[in-house]
Measured scan of single mutants.
Amino acid sequence: KHICAICGDRSSGKHYGVYSCEGCKGFFKRTVRKDLTYTCRDNKDCLIDKRQRNRCQYCRYQKCLAMGMKREAVQEE
């Protein structure tokens, strides 16, 4: 069993190059498709875990990228 590289929830498989849960997969897809931009209200180092993953979209998206999620993979779907 794999866990989500972004928030630690149960992974549903590899999405956009990274083991991730449905929540983070959908979040990344929406962000890329709609070309959304986020801002962090703190120091750009918010904790992203299962409980708090919805608290800061900026940091969640940065963690998706840092863990290796690929924007191109969304476009190719």
Rank of each mutant, 00 (worst) to 15 (best):
K1T: 02
K1E: 04
K1L: 02
K1A: 01
K1I: 04
K1S: 02
H2Y: 10
H2C: 03
H2L: 08
H2D: 15
H2E: 15
I3T: 10
I3G: 03
I3E: 02
I3N: 11
I3A: 03
C4V: 00
C4K: 00
C4G: 00
C4H: 01
C4S: 00
C4R: 00
C4L: 00
A5P: 06
A5C: 12
A5G: 08
I6D: 01
I6M: 08
I6S: 02
I6V: 09
I6W: 01
I6Y: 00
I6K: 00
I6C: 12
I6T: 06
C7V: 00
C7D: 02
C7S: 00
C7W: 00
G8A: 09
G8Y: 08
G8K: 07
G8C: 09
G8M: 06
G8D: 08
G8F: 12
D9G: 04
D9F: 02
D9Q: 13
D9S: 04
D9K: 13
D9L: 01
R10C: 07
S11N: 06
S11F: 05
S11I: 05
S11E: 06
S11W: 06
S11K: 05
S11V: 03
S11M: 05
S12T: 15
S12F: 05
S12C: 01
S12M: 13
S12K: 15
S12N: 15
G13M: 08
G13S: 04
G13L: 06
G13E: 15
G13N: 14
G13T: 11
G13C: 01
G13V: 06
K14G: 11
K14C: 09
K14V: 07
K14Y: 03
K14T: 08
K14N: 09
K14D: 12
K14E: 08
K14H: 02
K14P: 11
H15C: 06
H15Q: 10
H15K: 04
H15S: 03
H15D: 06
Y16C: 10
Y16Q: 15
Y16F: 15
Y16G: 12
Y16M: 11
G17R: 05
G17P: 03
G17Q: 05
G17H: 07
G17Y: 05
G17C: 11
G17L: 05
V18E: 12
V18Y: 03
V18S: 02
V18H: 02
V18Q: 04
V18K: 02
V18P: 03
V18I: 04
V18F: 04
Y19M: 10
Y19E: 07
Y19N: 04
Y19F: 05
Y19T: 06
Y19R: 05
S20F: 10
S20L: 14
S20E: 03
S20G: 15
S20Q: 12
C21R: 01
C21K: 00
C21G: 00
C21M: 01
C21Y: 01
E22W: 10
E22P: 08
E22T: 08
E22V: 07
E22S: 06
E22R: 11
E22I: 10
G23I: 02
G23S: 02
G23N: 03
G23H: 05
G23T: 03
C24P: 00
C24Q: 00
C24K: 00
G26K: 12
G26F: 04
G26A: 11
G26Q: 14
G26S: 05
G26T: 06
F27S: 11
F27L: 03
F28Y: 04
F28G: 01
F28T: 00
F28K: 00
F28V: 02
F28E: 02
K29Q: 07
K29L: 12
K29Y: 03
K29H: 06
K29D: 10
K29W: 11
K29S: 07
K29N: 13
K29A: 14
K29P: 01
R30G: 06
R30P: 01
R30C: 02
R30Q: 04
R30K: 15
R30Y: 04
R30E: 08
R30M: 04
R30H: 03
T31D: 01
T31G: 04
T31A: 09
T31Y: 05
T31F: 06
V32S: 06
V32N: 12
V32G: 07
V32F: 11
V32L: 06
V32M: 09
V32I: 06
V32W: 03
V32Y: 06
V32K: 10
R33H: 10
R33M: 11
R33P: 04
R33I: 11
R33N: 10
D35G: 09
D35V: 15
D35Y: 04
L36D: 14
L36C: 15
T37P: 15
T37A: 13
T37V: 13
T37W: 07
Y38V: 11
Y38I: 08
Y38S: 09
Y38F: 15
Y38R: 05
Y38D: 05
Y38L: 12
Y38P: 14
T39W: 10
T39F: 10
T39S: 13
T39G: 14
T39I: 15
T39D: 14
T39N: 13
T39C: 14
T39K: 13
T39R: 12
C40R: 01
C40Y: 01
C40W: 01
C40M: 01
R41Y: 11
R41L: 05
R41T: 13
R41F: 13
R41P: 15
R41H: 15
R41Q: 14
R41V: 10
D42G: 15
D42N: 13
N43M: 13
N43F: 06
N43A: 12
N43Q: 05
N43K: 15
N43P: 06
N43I: 12
K44H: 06
K44R: 09
K44A: 11
K44F: 09
K44S: 10
D45E: 14
D45L: 07
D45W: 09
D45C: 07
D45S: 09
D45I: 04
D45R: 11
D45V: 09
D45Q: 12
D45M: 02
C46F: 02
C46H: 05
C46Y: 02
C46P: 04
C46A: 04
L47R: 05
L47M: 07
L47V: 10
L47F: 12
L47S: 04
L47D: 06
L47K: 07
L47P: 08
L47W: 11
I48C: 08
I48F: 05
I48A: 07
I48H: 15
I48E: 04
I48P: 10
I48S: 08
I48V: 14
D49E: 11
D49Y: 03
D49P: 09
D49M: 03
K50R: 09
K50D: 13
K50V: 14
K50T: 05
K50F: 10
K50I: 09
R51M: 09
R51G: 12
R51V: 08
R51K: 15
R51Y: 07
R51E: 11
R53A: 10
R53T: 15
R53D: 11
R53K: 12
R53I: 12
R53Q: 09
R53M: 06
N54Y: 07
N54S: 03
C56S: 02
Q57I: 03
Q57M: 02
Q57P: 13
Q57H: 14
Q57V: 08
Y58C: 06
Y58T: 02
Y58I: 01
Y58F: 09
Y58A: 10
Y58N: 05
Y58R: 08
C59E: 01
C59S: 01
C59W: 02
C59A: 01
C59N: 00
C64R: 01
L65G: 04
L65E: 09
L65R: 05
L65T: 15
L65Q: 13
L65I: 04
L65S: 07
A66C: 05
A66E: 13
A66F: 12
A66H: 14
A66R: 09
M67G: 09
M67W: 07
M67R: 11
M67F: 10
M67E: 10
M67C: 09
M67K: 12
G68W: 02
G68S: 05
G68I: 01
G68Y: 03
G68T: 02
G68L: 02
M69T: 02
M69Q: 04
M69H: 01
M69G: 04
M69E: 02
M69P: 01
M69D: 01
K70G: 14
K70R: 10
K70M: 08
K70V: 14
R71Q: 11
R71N: 12
R71H: 10
R71D: 15
R71C: 11
R71Y: 11
R71I: 13
E72N: 07
E72Y: 02
E72H: 05
E72G: 05
A73W: 10
A73N: 12
A73C: 14
A73S: 11
A73L: 09
A73D: 14
A73T: 12
V74P: 11
V74N: 06
V74Y: 08
V74Q: 10
V74L: 07
V74D: 08
V74W: 06
V74K: 15
V74M: 09
V74I: 10
V74G: 09
Q75W: 04
Q75M: 14
Q75G: 10
Q75K: 07
Q75R: 11
Q75E: 15
E76C: 13
E76F: 11
E76T: 07
E76G: 14
E76S: 08
E76W: 07
E76P: 07
E76M: 08
E77T: 15
E77C: 12
E77V: 11
E77K: 12
E77S: 10
